[in-house]
């Protein structure tokens, strides 16, 4: 096998591997959605409890994905969880939009659902959503249920 042939075949091998990587990155993984970096703005919301919300969890309005959770941190002075979201620049939401942490399906992953308000001014980069609804924590719900049951009797 001459040197030139070997070099050609190795080159083909490398190209094949690169194509495989490209295919995997674009068609299989969510790399495409990372590409919307240019046109996003950030808004914040504070919750008492974020439940199972994670970074990169979706942010939806009316069931349509409009952004994702960029960062989750804890405000040690207000004792609340601070969720920073990146919203696609194509969408605008009124200042009095509310954010709730909901679950997709029965056992699905958690996401932030936005319910638009009626204000004439819109949320911008750095704004904060005032109206928030924390995630339902199962133990608390059960606890409330038992408590109310006990109250009845």
């Amino acid at each position: 096998m001459s040197t030139r042939n070997i070099e050609i075949i190795v080159g083909a091998f490398v190209v094949l591997a690169v194509l495989a990587m490209v295919m995997l990155s674009l068609k299989v993984s969510n790399l495409a959605s990372y590409g919307d970096v240019g046109n996003v703005y950030e808004i914040r919301a504070e919750f008492e409890n974020i439940g199972g919300l994670k970074e990169r969890s979706p942010v939806s309005a009316g069931g349509v994905r409009v952004g994702k959770v960029a960062d989750i941190s804890y405000n040690n002075e207000q004792f609340t969880a601070v969720v920073t979201m990146q919203i696609d620049g194509d969408y605008r939401f009124p200042l009095d939009t509310s954010a709730s942490i909901l679950t997709a399906g029965l056992l699905g992953e958690q996401y932030v659902g936005l319910e638009p308000g009626g204000d004439e001014e819109y949320l911008e980069d750095g704004s904060e959503i005032e109206l928030t609804q924390s995630a339902l924590v199962l133990e608390q719900v059960i606890g409330q249920f038992l408590y109310s049951k006990a109250q009845e009797e």
């Binding site: 299989v28 993984s29 969510n30």
Partner: peptide
Amino acid sequence: FWSQMQTKVDFYDDL
């Protein structure tokens, strides 16, 4: 087939 994967498979975490 493809859309199910594309949203849920994370480039960094998985690939």
